[in-house]
């Protein structure tokens, strides 16, 4: 696990139909320490996915720099694991093979990588589902596979783009609690993107409020861990922090 530094990052898209430039990200700077859990929160269209895709190396940035462990990002790589909103599991691979995919690409032997995969599946309570294909799982289970598939490859940074946006509210709460538990156990560096303020405050050490491609403010979340919705629902500090973030995001 390593830290992540973003300096004066910007992105300008060229829209070939309108023939105009659209600047989606303006001069964003952010430092994420090793083992930190940072949530970027902001309204739809504020450039969250664009930022994440640049960190992941899926799209080039047009200004500034992105450093992982001091080294500039040039393209996608296994040092940055990604969890997708659409899960993006390989439909032709079983759950076990999906989770073992990263180690397989690293050249880990079959016995060894299946051991790793089983260990991570157990972490997400997915042991039963190991031999099944993704299309045989519920959305919530698929996304748990998506999370442990990224984790099993032991990336320096874990990037998550609204991973729980397409599951129902109850499942989402369970997934959030599980994610904080897994994070506490493995302590990966996480950048988590969401438009849900409560989700951001629940998960993060630090919330970065984003609007129209700019960072508005960074808010430290000093809530104790382990966190659970039962405990935090009526927690005054949680309410206060959520209220502040919500105000920030809405006022912009």
């Amino acid at each position: 696990m390593k830290d992540l530094t973003i300096r004066n990052l910007s992105k300008t898209y060229f829209d070939p139909y309108a023939g105009t430039n659209v600047t989606a990200v303006h001069d964003v700077s952010l430092k994420v320490e090793q083992g930190e859990f940072v949530c970027i929160v902001g309204p739809s269209g504020c450039g969250k996915t664009t930022i994440l895709n640049m960190i992941a190396g899926f799209i080039p940035h047009t200004g500034g720099e992105i450093l992982v462990g001091g080294r500039p990002v040039k393209g996608p790589g296994p040092d940055r694991g990604v969890v997708f909103q659409s899960f993006a599991l390989f439909p032709w691979r079983t759950v076990l093979e999906n989770v073992a995919f990263g180690p397989k690409m690293r050249g880990v032997r079959k016995v060894e990588r299946e051991k790793i995969a089983h260990e991570f599946l157990a972490l997400a309570k997915l042991t039963e589902a190991a031999g099944r294909y993704p299309n045989e799982l519920s959305g919530g289970m698929q996304q748990r596979v998506g999370v442990v598939r990224a984790l099993a490859n032991e990336p320096d940074v874990l990037l998550m783009d609204e991973p729980f946006a397409s599951v129902d509210a109850q499942t989402r709460m369970t997934l959030q609690e599980e994610l904080t538990r897994i994070w506490q156990e493995k302590r990966p560096t996480v950048i988590f993107i969401t438009h849900d303020v409560a989700e951001a405050v629940f998960l993060a050490n630090r919330v970065v409020a984003l609007s129209k491609g700019r960072v508005l403010e960074e808010i430290d979340v000093d809530l104790p861990r382990p966190r659970s919705w039962d405990a935090l629902n009526d927690d005054a500090r949680f309410k206060e922090l959520s209220g502040r973030v919500l105000q920030l995001v809405r006022s912009a």
Partner: peptide, 29 residues
Amino acid sequence: IPITLHRAAQSLGASRIRILWEVVLPGAL
């Protein structure tokens, strides 16, 4: 084949050749 599958394979460390075998071929099958 959804672009996210290419991206997922890339950020799990798959080379272009492996992506051919692991993503493109089964996806197009």
